[in-house]
Design a protein around this nucleic acid. Structure first.
Lengths: 221, 221
DNA sequence: AGCGGAAGTCAACAAGCGTTGGCATATCGT
DNA sequence: ACGATATGCCAACGCTTGTTGACTTCCGCT
């Protein structure tokens, strides 16, 4: 279900967490020029993929290391060896980029529809945001992660398109409340009416809301 | 933190779950006239209160029966004795009533502000909705409970005030997406901008959104 | 070829979980 | 006052969890 989502999906594989006891080799390899790919990269990637899937469908607590390892068809101990602990594995798995488009050359009156359309092309068929949401609801570091993502990524994107910079965080928060609300009801809770609405209709309904949160004059009631 | 919220808060105490092995006494008491209060009602209520608190802050998995029992200052086995199992305890604890006001005599152009204002007076200082949300994110029966609540309670309330009955579920879903989105970002994830906005400002921002979801003509973009 | 280290397997640990049954105490009907 | 019954505590069960260490297998290098 989880598809290519993360920056390093099939890349040179994620770095192991800081605390992980790793075979010492760092000084033997040339410092510059990038780390030579290791033989275990495929396994690392498989673990990460399985972890995202499990965290997505089960949440942090119910997603067991044993289940993740079984999905990746390796031993549970390998998960610890490569990622240090369950908490660090989650931190790595939950790392993601909204990859918001550059909104600065979008006409001001089309910001809503562009942002909403983008979020749907990003979310439909990609389970990583629901995954993060699911775990953020019960796991403190998951919640912290969501706060970071929306402060850093959505916050800065919104800051570039609002009229009054001082209003940016508030407007970004409102946008997040509606967009995460849709993600929650459609992908996590699966409220039937929200699941049934075609994306195109949803875009029509939501765009004016986001447009208003972004661009409406400050005192609008 | 959790305050008087549930219908039976200090009432004659919740009925134990069906499967719970209860001392057999039913035939000794008069069938009609209501069950005489039992001596253990205080304990039952304490368990339920502690359970709501724990489920609210920790979610289903992290909220352990032992912790709940410790909060209620009784033995873990009592929780099972009175509520049958953890799952049944949760089912009882998560039972709640939105207690939506009657919207049928509200002027059509004020539905948004009335509904939003009501939800804030209901949620601020009441942790039971965040509790439900937190558990619904990872627990299947929690999610089912939210679906029921919003289909039955919000769904029917909305159905009475929309123009075209066929559009009612969709409009209710949109309303839920925004209101639950606020609950999620403000109370569960605690995104700083959403936490900081005073309720009055939030009402000003959200009311037009809800108003539009409820009353805007069908094809509005 | 042979050695070093990485990759992977296996069994086990300590801790925590929900749940159970037995046993002591308190309360109430008679 | 006595027996019945409700109430509560204690200790333990079977199980699952994250995590660890020892052991074997495989690959790459000199």
């Amino acid at each position: 279900m989880t598809e290519g989502v993360l920056p390093e999906e099939a890349g040179p594989a994620a770095e192991p967490a800081a605390g992980a006891r790793r075979p010492r080799r760092a000084d033997a390899a040339p410092a510059a020029g990038g780390p030579r790919p290791r033989r275990s990269d495929a396994t690392r990637a498989a673990i990460l993929r399985a972890a995202r899937d499990r965290f997505a469908t089960d949440g942090y607590d119910r997603a067991t290391i044993r289940a993740i390892a079984a999905d990746a068809q390796i031993d549970p101990s390998m998960v610890i060896r490569y990622y240090g602990s369950k908490e660090e594995l989650f931190a790595t798995a939950a790392e993601f980029d909204l990859r918001l488009p550059d909104l600065s050359d979008v006409p001001a009156d089309r910001l809503g529809v562009v942002l909403v359309s983008y979020f749907f092309t990003r979310w439909e068929g990609d389970s990583s945001l629901p995954a993060l949401l699911r775990t953020a609801c019960t796991n403190p570091s998951g919640a912290e992660r969501v706060r970071e993502i929306f402060a850093d990524q959505l916050g800065t994107a919104v800051a570039r398109v609002v009229a009054d910079p001082a209003q940016a965080p508030r407007r970004a928060g409102l946008v997040a409340s509606q967009l995460l609300g849709v993600a929650l009801t459609r992908y996590v809770l699966r409220l039937p009416p929200m699941v049934d609405i075609p994306p195109a209709d949803l875009i029509d309904w939501l765009s004016p809301t986001i447009q208003r949160y972004l661009r409406a004059p400050a005192g609008t009631a």
